[in-house]
Every structure is written in C-alpha cells, then in structure tokens.
Amino acid sequence: MSVEAIIRLVGVERTYRKGGESVRVLDDLDLEVPRGGYVALMGPSGSGKTTLLNLIGGLDKADGGQVIVDGEDLTRLGQGALARWRAASVGFVFQGFNLMPVLTAQQNVELPLLLTNLSRRERREHARHALALVGLDDRRSHRPKQLSGGQEQRVAIARALVTDPILILADEPTGDLDRDSAGAVLELLDKLNRESDKTIVMVTHDPRAADSARSIVHLDKGRLERIEDRRPLEPADSTTT
C-alpha cells in the first residue's frame, strides 16, 4: 500500500556563490518522503544534506525545481508567507540547540506560540505540556545555561513540537551530546514519530542516530546516491525517488 508523500522534491537545484565562484550544492534532486516517515539524511560534508533540510523547512529557497511540502510549493511563497508557513508547519531541532539564553526553558518553549492566537494562559499550559512530554517539567524555570546539553536539546524538541507541526526537521540533533543524552534524544524522536505520527527528517553523521530512522537517504555531491530502508513503518512506509 503506498503512503501519501508529505514532502516532494522535483528537480531541485541550489547554487551558492563563494569567493566569486558558483558552487552547485544540490543538483537536479528528486525525493519523496511519506507522511509519518522518519528519514535520516547522510553523506559526506558538502554533500548538500543541511541545504536540503533548509529547503524542506523553508529556511532557504531553491534556484530551480519544486519543493512541495504538505501540498504547498515553497518555491512560490514570498518571505512573509514562508515565515507563516514555517510557524504553522515545521518544528526545528538544531545541533547547537539554539535556545534563547536570556529566556527560561518554559519561555523558550512558549516562543513559537506567540505567533498563534492562544491566550497567555493557554500558551503556558501548552508549553508545560510539551516540557512534560520531554520529561523536563521540573526544569521549566531554568535557563539554558543551567541545563545539561541533553536537557537543552530536549527543551529544543519541546519547542519544536509545541505548535503541533506536521514536520520535525532535525539538523545533527545528537552532534553535541554524549552517548547517553544522544540515546535519550533519539528515543524521544522515535516516540514522536511512532506515537504522534510526526514526519521527521534528520541530518546526521552518526550511524547510530541513522539507525533509529526508518529509511536513510544517502547524498553525495548534491545528488541522491541511494535510499536505504531500515525498518518498516506501520502500517506501511515507502520512500521513493
């Protein structure tokens, strides 16, 4: 049984200018990710993994081709519309956590909710719930500096899921973590994928992290090299080119 593709990339190209030279980072890339999928993007440095993730998340725009996410062609959206789309549809988890150092865990998680119509009380409740989900309810008044790396990343995951996005994009989420913390973060992502039906796309160099995904997309020099299915998604999963 085929599953609807939530992400569809058709002939995507992205070129950067560096020192007066054009560097093609993504070259005629086609890719589909099914709704509820959990995909790891792997490849050597410079293969275009993070660029691809940025295009899917609407942080960057393709020079050519189409980037269609949940039926929306991101290449046609202006900056304002793209920002609104990001706020409603995507949760980001970064390698360096990217929390606001001047805000508490609770306030960091509440931040994306400022773009919604929720009341202050509702925002607080949603944030508390999200923090409870990542096991940090008792750390909500702590600032990032007062948390361990693993805890910071869990706060970042809480922030990513607090708006209930359809898509979670993670860029090396375990890159700055020790083995135990990384394990806990991967477990959390897996749980979100299984239990909350979140589609997850994760850039990683870590084979152990990639193992937690249901499929691994290998990139090289901006091109799709191969797709490796790891474990079946229930009830069905397919990642196709």
């Binding site: 920002a83 990001r86 773009l115 922030r159």
Partner: peptide, 14 residues
C-alpha cells in the same frame, strides 16, 4: 544575529 536567525526559523517575520 544568531537569535534573530532562530526567531526567523521559528516563523517570526522581518
């Protein structure tokens, strides 16, 4: 600069 990047990634506008 970095904080502004985070805010924009979260969906805040220019």
């Amino acid at each position: 600069t970095h904080s502004i990047g985070i805010l924009k990634a979260l969906g805040f506008t220019h």
